[in-house]
Design a binder for these strands. Structure first.
Lengths: 338, 338
DNA sequence: GTGAAAGCGCTAACAA
DNA sequence: TTGTTAGCGCTTTCAC
């Protein structure tokens, strides 16, 4: 395996010149630049990242910690994050915590050992264990929906409000008044925010909020079915359900189908996220889209500026990602009571 | 940020002793061992992986390259791979190629730069560009369904045959004779193997193989719909469809629903993979399960033995992962023709 | 513009 | 059992 010395020898220059060349320093003359690149090609030389990191202190490694890689929302997020990171010369380290704080802490530790230049914490809750470790060591981090008073921390605010208002208005326009909300686990910031936005939207639309129709689920397929079951056992039932995420909605769709309820004739269902499966549910799911691409870009941008331009006082520390309703076929006017 | 010297100073030992301690060398006395660990705790010391890698030549980094992270099969595979790797002290680098050979080559290059100890190539086709680079540099690799005559390369053979035979027998037992197969893209080894196994199973079951009912799709949601469409336009139609993967089957389910065909009364559908969504389709999907856990474990084991015990002549170089049918509700006896 | 040399934090060979 | 020391491959002053 050729090293920088081999290249220098072949190109008949010093290793410093080779180093400058591969780092595209402007100080290298056209002549040597050409010679060095030729030697690099010829030897099939690849710089050793570990050596570079060791001396420069920068690893060009970015961590991304997600809540649950099994929820299609996250692979799509990771894919976007990787794309933009790789395009800018960064590599990514992925970890999934399954909402377990202990796992999160272990991830953070491993990322610290690998000397990541920044970490995107996309767990939407339970961030405390990482914050301590990462912030304390001066690693730039970006959080979703969680502000931290530290110069190295940035926040991505998710404006669920817009999409949720649209959803409620859409249902109200269809004639629904009895709307339930299957919330996410309350340990997630995102779940709390979404639920609060739902309440606000209902209030604004002049619709009654039924406490028993707001049920905490787990953001997973099975949880949607469980939530539906709870709703089913109640004396009065809603004509529409808004779910805190698409996984829950898909679970509801299945439970309703099993019970013989037709969607959307007997029941309207709305999800949130717009994962790629949402277009392929039966019926195709009306949902509130949260762009993974936007989120990934914002996260990367936050980390990159922190890493490459630390201490810049007028650096953007807050980012906003919006949501909007995508109407498909799981919503319709409620059946008229006989 | 404390380094090994700081720990040595605090514990009043040499840096060699600290190094031995953190590498759990048996040569350190109980007394010093304790003192060193205490200093480590006190300083909150984390060893620098890059320095370790630089001198030891081993990064404890494993790459995993998947075909398409957006297909839920792969996140589940990655999750299992990460679990077992982290448990054994390895970190993983994930990349998704979207079946693009150029992307694959770029991934391989980046992994080479990061000095991975091994790469699991789970792309099921188009591996050639990586092979050249990786094998040539002596990096252990493990491939799915692709044997390579190199001492550093291992192979995981996937026995689709068992599951596919079960599927065909299941349908035949139900009374189906007209069975279609929506294949994956022919550039994937897995797609070819699955299709061949389907033909063999049909033959063995004494069922007619209709060329026009074997259609190449793309293993994606949309592709399933397209395949269904092609089937629909034919004068005679099958009573059952076996799909090369679950994504295709989900696409078929949706297309059938759109056309007003009832599954399983009018049409039986079988998938392959058993992704977690398969249990939540409408109706729940009968499918051929391919265990991500088994696959991930085999891949890790192959790489670890290669990395930690190179040159062992009696090392296992081939692994087998099996499949089996999981019957749910998307299959039933065909409607009797009036 | 280019090169010589110091040293990033650690492991491993050798000495004691 | 413990310590001393020579690099691992590279970036980065500092001279020239």
């Amino acid at each position: 395996m050729p090293d920088i010395r081999a290249v220098a020898a072949l190109a008949k220059v010093s290793i410093a010149t080779v180093s400058r060349t591969i780092n595209s320093s402007p100080l290298v003359s056209e002549r040597l630049n050409k010679r060095v690149w030729q030697a690099i090609k010829q030897l099939n030389y690849l710089p050793n990242t570990h050596a570079r990191t060791l001396v420069s202190g920068r690893s060009r490694l970015l961590g991304i910690i997600v809540e649950n890689i099994t929820n299609p929302f996250f692979p799509e997020l990771i894919q976007s994050f990787e794309e933009v990171a790789v395009a800018r010369g960064y590599e990514i380290l992925v970890s999934s915590t399954n909402s377990d704080p202990a796992v999160l802490a272990a991830c953070a530790r491993r990322m610290l050992e690998r000397k990541v230049d920044g970490v995107a914490v996309m767990t939407f809750g339970e961030e405390e264990p990482v914050l301590d470790q990462l912030v304390h060591r001066g690693v730039p981090i970006v959080l979703a929906e969680f502000k931290l008073d530290d110069p190295k921390a940035s926040t991505i605010l998710l404006d669920y409000s817009t999409g949720i208002h649209e959803a409620v208005r859409h249902l109200a326009g269809l004639g629904h008044r009895a709307i339930a909300f299957l919330a996410g686990p309350h340990k997630l910031h995102s779940a709390i925010t979404r639920e609060n936005d739902f309440r606000a939207a209902m209030q604004l639309a002049g619709l009654p909020i039924q406490k028993k129709w707001i049920i905490e689920c787990d953001h997973m397929l099975k949880g949607g079915g469980d939530g539906y079951e709870q709703l089913r056992r109640q004396p009065t039932r809603p004509t529409a359900i808004i779910c805190s995420n698409d996984m829950t909605a898909i679970g509801v769709l299945r439970a309703a189908y099993m019970e013989g309820m037709r969607v959307p004739q007997d029941l309207s269902v709305i999800g949130l996220d717009d994962i790629s499966f949402a277009e392929y549910t039966l019926p195709p799911l009306t949902t509130i889209r949260l762009s993974r691409t936007d989120l990934a870009r914002a996260a990367f941008e936050a980390l990159r500026t922190q890493a490459e331009d630390p201490g810049n006082p007028k650096m953007q520390r807050e980012f906003l990602v919006s949501t909007r309703l995508v109407v498909r076929s799981s919503t319709a006017a409620p059946a008229v009571k006989p």
